[in-house]
């Protein structure tokens, strides 16, 4: 609030007295400010994910029906997740790439679980602006590197879902997951 000096604030007298009174006024305004700030906590945190949304943050997917060369789309946190059973040829292609030449250098082994290198599990969310890349569905374009191709802005991913061409800055994200059995993957 705008105000100028000397607008009717009572004339104060002795020095100590003035300091004591000023202190109380400042403390009162301070307390009001602290209260106002504390109120912001619930007002802001109400927008973060609610308990039911957080509870959905793991999902179990059956992979027994996916044959080599096939992929399925699962749902994890209301977003697509690609589960792909790589063929030996695709694995070989992925391993043939010089890692140092990649925009986001990672080997296929780093992006899969030991002993399960044929299971490439990634988010189906382009790291550019979040579109769903093509390539997981039957008959979809896989792009020039044989992995995924994002139609929005032309990002191409290879058979390890690493970014090879186009505007996306990162490889497709590998979510946290574990094999709860040979045929079931728990994501999240």
């Amino acid at each position: 609030m705008a105000h100028d000096a000397g607008t009717g604030i009572p004339e104060l007298t002795a020095g100590d007295e003035v300091r004591r009174r000023d202190f109380i006024n400042i403390a009162a305004v301070g307390a009001a400010s602290v209260g106002g700030l504390a109120v912001l906590i619930p007002l802001i945190s109400q927008m973060s994910p609610s308990a039911d949304v957080l509870a959905e943050s793991s999902t179990e997917i059956d992979i027994s029906q996916i044959k080599p060369g096939q992929a399925i789309k699962g749902v994890f946190r209301k977003q697509p997740v690609f589960l792909r059973n790589l063929t030996p040829k695709e694995i070989a292609e992925a391993n043939a790439v010089s890692v140092a030449s990649l925009r986001d250098p990672q080997t296929l082994a780093e992006r899969t679980k030991p002993g399960k290198e044929n299971w490439l599990i990634t988010m189906g969310v382009c790291t550019h602006l979040g579109c769903v890349p093509l390539g997981a569905g039957e008959g979809e374009v896989k792009g020039e590197f044989g992995g995924y191709f994002c139609p929005c802005h032309g990002s191409s991913y290879d058979t390890a879902a690493r970014i090879r061409k186009g505007p996306a800055p990162k490889n497709l994200e590998v979510p946290e997951y574990t094999f709860t059995s040979d045929t079931v993957v728990k994501i999240g």
């Binding site: 906590i41 619930p42 007002l43 945190s45 109400q46 973060s48 609610s50 308990a51 039911d52 949304v53």
Partner: peptide
């Protein structure tokens, strides 16, 4: 009821 149970601070608001 979703506000009351699951939204952060929803019950209070």
């Amino acid at each position: 009821e979703h506000i009351m149970r699951d939204v952060n601070w929803g019950w209070m608001l």
